[in-house]
Measured scan of single mutants.
Amino acid sequence: KITVTFNGEEKARRYYKKMQKHNLKVEIRVENNQWVVHVE
């Protein structure tokens, strides 16, 4: 499981979509004013 933190929504969403293309289970959320993407 990987957790990647971004300081911008745009970058986070781009990464999220990229990971989805690989058929990975991805989850995006905001934690402590940071955009966090969890990849299983």
Rank of each mutant, 00 (worst) to 15 (best):
R13W: 10
E40S: 13
V4A: 06
K1E: 08
I28S: 00
V39D: 00
V26E: 00
E40F: 14
V36F: 06
K18W: 15
L24P: 04
F6K: 01
R14E: 15
E9F: 13
K17N: 13
Q20M: 13
K17Y: 08
G8S: 15
E9C: 12
V30G: 04
I2Q: 06
N23H: 14
E27S: 13
T5W: 10
V4G: 01
V26F: 01
K18M: 14
E9S: 04
K21C: 13
Y15D: 02
V26P: 04
K25Q: 10
A12D: 01
V36M: 05
H38D: 14
Y16P: 03
I2D: 03
N32D: 09
V36G: 01
H38E: 15
E10M: 10
E31W: 04
K11A: 15
Q34V: 11
K17T: 10
I2H: 12
V4Q: 04
E9T: 02
E10N: 09
K18F: 15
V30D: 03
I2E: 05
M19Q: 02
K25F: 07
R29C: 11
K11M: 14
Y15M: 03
V39H: 03
N7A: 11
R14H: 09
E9H: 05
E10K: 11
V39Q: 02
V26A: 07
K21Y: 10
Y16F: 12
V39G: 01
N33Q: 08
R14Q: 13
V39Y: 05
H22P: 03
F6T: 01
K25T: 08
N23Y: 12
G8P: 03
H22K: 14
E10H: 09
V4R: 11
K18L: 14
R29G: 09
K17H: 12
N7P: 10
G8L: 13
Y15H: 03
F6V: 01
K11I: 11
L24T: 05
Q34E: 07
Q34C: 12
R29V: 11
R29Q: 08
K21V: 07
K11E: 15
I28R: 00
E31T: 07
E40Y: 15
K25R: 10
E9I: 08
V4E: 03
R14F: 09
A12N: 01
V4W: 03
V4L: 10
K11V: 12
H38Y: 15
T3M: 07
K18G: 04
E10I: 08
K21D: 12
Q34R: 11
M19P: 00
R29A: 13
N33S: 06
V36Q: 04
F6G: 01
V4H: 08
V4P: 01
E10F: 09
T5E: 05
A12E: 02
K11T: 13
V26I: 05
N33G: 15
K25E: 07
